[in-house]
Structure formats: C-alpha cells, structure tokens
Computed example of a mutant assay.
Amino acid sequence: MRTANLDDRLVLVRDDGKAVDVEKASDGLFSSDPQAVFDRWDAFTDWAATAEARSDHGVPFDERQLGAPVPRPRQIFAVALNYADHVDESAFDTPEHLSVFTKFPTSLTGPYDTVELPSSLVDWEVELVAVIGRHAHRVGVRDAWSHVAGLTVGQDLSERRLQLRGPAPQFSLGKSFPGFSPTGPFLVTPDEVEDPDDLAIGCAVSGETMQESRTSRMIFSVPDQIARISAVCPLLPGDLVFTGTPAGVGGAREPRRFLAPGEVLHSWIDGIGTLDTRLTAGLTHPHGPDA
C-alpha cells in the first residue's frame, strides 16, 4: 500500500497512479487528516485491503501537489554514523552503540518544496525514513518491523557550522532549520518492496551524483534501531526515524562542497520514490550559523 498527502488530504495511491481520497471513499470512517491515520493504523490497513477501498474512482494528480506524508509527528529521531563508509569519511571509529539525535517537527517539508539556505555551509544527507505505526516500547529486534507503518525518502539537511560549533555539538539545531527535513513523496508499506532491509539509495546535486549506496550497508538495521531507541523512549504512532546516511556528504569532500542557491537536490530510494528540493538564498540571522 502507498499513501500520500495530497493538498493536505490523506489519499491511497493505486497501482495505476491515481489517488483515492480516503475520507470520501470510507464514507467518513477515516479522517482526511494525513497525520490522524497513524493512531488507527491497523484498522486503516484492514480497510485499505478491501475491494471497496480501491473501487472508488481515483483521480490523476500532479506529484508536485504532495506534501510531507507525515506532516505533524510528535517525535523525530535521527541516527548518526550508521554506514561504515560514512564513518570512515567522517574520521570516526565504528560505533559500538547507536548515536541518536532529534530533528524538530518544524523542519519538515514536502518532496518538491523550496528550502532557504541560512548559510553557505548547508550539506546533504539522503536517508531512509521509517514511520512508526504502532506504539513501540521495549520492542525486540524480531518484532520491530511489525511496528513500522511504512517507509519514505528523507533528507537530513545539515548546517555544518552550527551543528559542530562548540563547546558541545548542536546536532539538533544544526539540522532543524525550516525545510531541513524534506520527506516523501509517498509512505510505502514494507510489504510493497522486495526486501525492506536492502534498498538502493542516493542523491544528486544539479545532476551530479553525490551519494549512492544500499540500506543493507547500515551498521544498525532498521529493526535494531527501533529496538534500541524504544528501549529508552516509547515510539508513538506517526513518529519518524531518520535511519542514517551513506558516504558522499559535501563536508567530507576535498575540496568541501556545499549546497548553493539555484541548485536542485534530487534524492531517491528504489521502490519508494524521489524528492526534488530546490535551494534558494535565505536571510542570515544575527545569532545563526554565520554569526
């Protein structure tokens, strides 16, 4: 099953590419709110599997009308240093423990939106994003996938000066400027892809490929991440987990390479979809990263 946020309404995306409005097709059984569905995810998936759910006359749509598939999560977790090649390019030792930070919900944006750059040091990090569908607390690795509603494509945009400025790093602030969490275009349930633990992932800046890998190269798999995070924090329906990025970030290149106004950041994960994020110049705050 694929769902999307079409003009702030929850839709099912059929195999023919047409959108079915969930509230209308269910006669009001489910809300049009794309966020509300996660609190009733099991009931929703049961309904979506019925012939009635897909017999509605779907409508064609322009993907550029899509917003973030999960527009208002209560929590956003993100994992650092989770691909061995990214660990190497960052000059760190292979981690023994999961390294987790947060991204704030106000940083979320859709799959085709424009993002203002707050400085000349904004980097890209393409990521697989797992969306929680069931309350998860102290979940074991074997049961973790059953708590995932679906997967989507994400970018963990990062302003490197603020992120790394001392005396202690500011990962959460440096990665939470407005628009710094593009996601989409769809939420895809794990059964829609051949192997949810092994997906091709990558991104390009204005046509030049920067990152290209597979999610099977993660140090901590998606189930392992959910188990480790939920051992401490209950994961709530509709929460997001940004699962880490592979090698190829701009700050690790020689010479360093960052995003510039006018460029387009194209991100993809096979079986899930693509993001096209356009970059524009923004105002630098007097207490922001360039201060």
Results as ranks from 00 to 15, higher is better:
111 P>G: 04
14 R>M: 06
123 D>M: 09
36 A>V: 02
243 T>I: 03
277 T>N: 06
47 W>I: 03
282 G>D: 01
287 H>S: 11
206 S>T: 12
139 V>C: 09
132 I>Y: 01
48 A>L: 08
117 L>I: 11
117 L>M: 10
196 P>T: 04
182 P>D: 13
41 W>E: 01
217 R>S: 13
246 P>Y: 10
133 G>F: 10
101 F>E: 08
17 G>D: 07
85 D>Q: 12
24 K>Q: 09
48 A>K: 12
138 R>G: 15
144 A>H: 06
181 S>Y: 04
53 A>I: 07
161 R>H: 14
40 R>E: 12
43 A>Q: 12
50 T>W: 14
276 D>G: 01
283 L>F: 07
284 T>C: 12
200 A>L: 11
261 P>I: 05
186 F>L: 09
112 Y>P: 03
171 F>Q: 10
112 Y>V: 03
12 L>E: 02
240 L>C: 06
117 L>E: 09
281 A>G: 09
245 T>R: 09
115 V>C: 02
171 F>S: 00
157 L>D: 03
157 L>K: 05
13 V>M: 00
18 K>Q: 13
34 P>W: 10
278 R>I: 06
90 S>F: 09
232 V>R: 12
157 L>Y: 08
14 R>V: 00
19 A>C: 09
139 V>P: 07
195 D>K: 00
203 C>L: 15
275 L>G: 07
117 L>P: 03
249 V>M: 13
217 R>W: 14
5 N>K: 04
98 L>Q: 06
162 L>R: 14
151 L>S: 04
266 H>K: 13
31 S>M: 08
35 Q>I: 01
147 H>R: 14
29 L>F: 06
82 N>H: 08
241 V>G: 02
18 K>V: 09
278 R>H: 13
178 P>G: 07
171 F>K: 01
181 S>Q: 09
40 R>N: 03
21 D>E: 05
48 A>Q: 10
15 D>R: 15
56 D>C: 10
43 A>G: 12
212 E>F: 05
69 P>R: 02
73 P>Y: 08
75 Q>I: 04
214 R>F: 15
57 H>M: 12
103 K>M: 14
7 D>H: 13
183 T>W: 02
283 L>V: 15
33 D>C: 04
1 M>W: 10
218 M>V: 02
205 V>F: 07
155 Q>D: 13
279 L>F: 14
287 H>P: 02
136 A>F: 01
51 A>P: 10
275 L>Y: 08
229 I>D: 00
285 H>N: 04
56 D>T: 15
123 D>Y: 07
121 L>K: 15
141 V>H: 01
229 I>T: 02
228 R>E: 14
197 D>Q: 15
268 W>M: 10
127 E>R: 00
260 A>Q: 15
211 Q>N: 14
290 D>G: 14
31 S>G: 12
274 T>D: 11
25 A>M: 07
149 A>G: 01
149 A>D: 01
195 D>P: 07
74 R>W: 13
282 G>Q: 05
77 F>W: 15
80 A>V: 04
43 A>L: 14
179 G>L: 05
278 R>W: 11
32 S>L: 11
266 H>N: 13
170 Q>T: 13
61 F>K: 00
260 A>W: 05
